[in-house]
């Protein structure tokens, strides 16, 4: 009972936040609403006893992806007026996609009606079961090779990114600490002699 109440509370906030993402005029506000939406969906995962997914949701989406989003939004300095006009422009496409999603939801509801595949509620696990532990166990035993390869892939991505971006080119704004420290007053300050001006 209490769980159902919690579910509805968080779902309501989630939907409200999602609407906020679409309707707020300021892109930074949109991103903040998206963060709120992610937090609420993480709580829904927790209610479903999928604590690992909940943690990953917060760590990856909120911690990494959204921070990147905010950086990009701030750096691009998007014109708010321009963005607001796009709502009606993309409306037909949005309607088509939402129609598809509604159709898919209907399918699920229909499946539930025919009592196949779909569970009534969240599946409850036995006492003391931890899916973080289960995932960790399988990741470090059965899939250890793939896990290590994924790590190599990340290392390679770092090497590749640095190779392609770390280079000297004209117009690059790099701090030369040596030059900065050894600067003398004459390099920066120029004394200008001029006659005193008359009082206005």
């Amino acid at each position: 009972m209490f769980q159902t109440l919690l579910f509805y509370v968080f779902s309501t906030v989630l939907i409200a936040a999602a609407l906020g993402v679409i309707f707020s005029r300021n892109p930074v506000h949109s991103v903040m609403f998206l963060v709120l939406a992610f937090f609420n969906s993480a709580v829904l995962w927790l209610l479903a006893e999928a604590e690992f997914l909940a943690i990953v949701m917060v760590l990856v989406y909120v911690g990494a992806v959204m921070v990147l989003f905010i950086f990009v939004v701030m750096m691009l300095d998007i014109n708010i007026e321009e963005v607001s006009g796009s709502l009606t422009r993309y409306a037909p496409l949005g309607l088509i996609i939402s129609a598809i999603m509604v159709f898919e939801l209907m399918q699920i509801i229909w499946l539930r009606g025919s009592e196949r595949f779909v569970l009534e509620g969240f599946a409850s696990m036995p006492e003391g079961y931890s899916n973080t532990k289960a995932l960790g166990a399988i990741l470090y035993t059965e899939h250890v090779y793939a896990f290590e390869l994924a790590a190599v892939l990340l290392l390679l991505a770092i090497v590749a990114a640095i190779t392609l971006t770390m280079r000297k080119r004209p117009g690059l704004k790099v701090q030369d600490i040596n030059q900065q420290v050894s600067v003398r007053r004459e390099d920066r300050v120029r004394m200008v002699k001029m006659d005193a001006e008359e009082r206005q």
């Binding site: 390869l149 994924a150 190599v152 892939l153 390679l156 991505a157 590749a160």
Partner: peptide
């Protein structure tokens, strides 16, 4: 797939 991605990325 992972091997292919390591190769392709480099």
């Amino acid at each position: 797939y992972l091997g292919l991605e390591i190769l392709s990325l480099s």
